[in-house]
Amino acid sequence: MSTTDDAFTEQRHGALTALSDLFWRRPKLLVLLLLAPPLLWLGVIYVGALLALLLQSFYAIDEFTGLVDYDVLTLKTYRELFNPANLDIIIRTVLMATTVTLASAIIAFPIAYMAARYARGKWKAMFYLAVMLPLWSSYLVKIYAWKLILAKEGILNWLFAQLHLTGLLEAYLGLPVVGGGSLSISYTGTFLVFVYVWMPFMILPTQAALERVPVNLTDASSDLGATPWQTFRHVTFPLALPGIIAGSIFTFSLTLGDYIIPQIIGSSRLFIGQAVYAHQGTAGNIPLAAAFSVVPIVIMGLYLWMAQRKGAFDAL
């Protein structure tokens, strides 16, 4: 062992040691220095940009020149949002987001339940990857895959033909609203792609919530004479609900803001995202685009507020 010197403190010098001593004496200084770069980046660049966007929505296009009038702050652009045509876009988008969210919740639940409750070891890893791969693989490739599937000469029509069900598909496409010339230019097509693309965002939180439900709770319920369905309705489902709501926040918000999916697969009628894109681009109406982009923020704010009032976050 090393020989002990009699001095209690060790003498050590150098710039780094001096800096280290300073951080030890002033731990808050270290935290501040660590936080400064990310806070500057996110706070100044990102939040600054968001505020700039918000500010834009309070300007309006001058009707004579067609240019943005930067001298007057006005609510005129927000009034424009309530034109029948624009209101139509908002309602259409919200309805689509709602149906996509409900469908995702229904399809996601069995997968999440299976992964949380029954899958073990290798199977558990398989389930995890089966959810993570589509989640992380390219958004555009996923849309492209559905363009291939839904094409007139594609695999879905081929399948219906093989099963001699082409008539059924045509009858469905003849229906109002959900139908259309073909699947790839109908609301049904848009809906399918939305559900597909956002599904993992529903599965993961639902699975996490289900994994937090103690197994002995469901055992206790069946010990008390509940049928599996009663156990599910009164024990499992209420406990999984916070996870489903967390997932719905993603599916709802992502559908509200998307502009690429309805542009590639769907009818030519606009969604909020497309309206934003069109107004800021070719139309050059940045104030209206900004006002349109405030809509999803307000709707999500209301959504989160309601979820919180229902006590959905307490269990999270």
Binding site: A7, F8, T9, E10, Q11, R12, S20, D21, R25
Partner: peptide, 16 residues
């Protein structure tokens, strides 16, 4: 004080 030396401003890595 540790062995007679004032220590409250000495960081842990310099204390024996």
């Amino acid at each position: 004080a540790i062995f007679g030396e004032r220590a409250e401003t000495v960081p842990p890595y310099k204390r024996n």
